[in-house]
């Protein structure tokens, strides 16, 4: 999933300052799971903004709230037109993709990002998310024991550890495991160390001409199974 962190109240207040009527829009998928912008965060932010306005005594804002299932999918945005009739701005708590999908869908209302989209990762434990994939476009996990060197090694190098690895940790951060030590240990356990001995040529960054587009390779049956 995509992991994000909510922006500071200060930054959000600065962004919404010119717009009196604000719709705080949550996202029911990734942002809900990483506690950055689901229904409960929307309502919490709503209260915090109101309280901050009362405290500062310069309140011109009115807030409404709404959460869609997924901001990145037009299928779930149909309800938006009615929610945005009396609104000057949308404060989206969706990831960067959600914000852009909304902006594309509603041409006339400004959309503001309420979160900082950080990475693709997994839930490590309750309240802890770890980055795991950088979407390089050519997955090599087969060769690395299921551990991604591009994401988990600070340098993203492909032919084994640098000399900075110490106590199994990365030279850049003593609290972070060295990806290449993890890969070595896992390949050893799987009796696949030959995969580490192989030479890996430089990455093909052309696999990611930006922006990328993926077309479905599956035939989608349309119109026939209605009912």
């Amino acid at each position: 999933m995509i992991v994000a962190e909510q922006k500071s109240l200060e930054e959000i207040r600065r962004m919404i300052a010119p717009y009196p009527r604000v719709l705080i829009l949550g996202c029911g998928t990734c942002m809900t799971v990483c506690n950055a912008g689901g229904e409960s965060e929307v309502s919490f932010l709503h209260n915090s903004l109101r309280l901050a306005e009362v405290r500062s005594g310069d309140g011109i804002h009115t807030f409404t709230e709404h959460t869609v299932k997924r901001q990145c999918d037009p299928e779930f945005l149909e309800t938006l037109s009615e929610k945005t009739i009396d609104v000057d701005v949308i404060l989206s708590l969706g990831c960067g993709i959600g914000v852009q999908a909304i902006a594309e869908y509603l041409g006339d209302i400004p959309v503001l990002p309420g979160v900082n989209t950080s990475f693709m990762g997994m839930t490590k434990e309750s309240g802890v998310w770890d980055e795991r994939c950088a979407a390089c476009g050519e997955c090599r996990l087969e060769d690395t024991g299921g551990i991604c060197p591009i994401t988990r090694c600070t340098k993203g190098i492909l032919n084994g550890p640098c000399a900075g690895s110490k106590n199994g940790k990365c030279e850049a951060n003593k609290d972070v495991d060295c990806a290449w030590i993890l890969i070595y240990k896992r390949l050893e356990r799987l009796q696949q160390l030959d995969k580490m001995r192989r030479y890996y040529s430089p990455r093909n960054f052309r696999a990611i001409p930006r922006p990328r587009r993926i077309l479905s390779k599956v035939e989608i049956a349309t119109g026939e199974s209605d009912g």
Binding site: I157, L158, N159, C162, C170, P202, F205
Partner: peptide
């Protein structure tokens, strides 16, 4: 050389390149 991580230096916000690693550099 692969090179030390940008994080240990004096320009910590710089973009780390690492387009190649040390082995790939030799091959190149």
């Amino acid at each position: 050389l692969t090179g030390d991580s940008v994080d240990v230096g004096d320009h910590k916000e710089a973009k780390p390149v690492f387009d190649l690693d040390s082995v790939q550099l030799i091959k190149m």
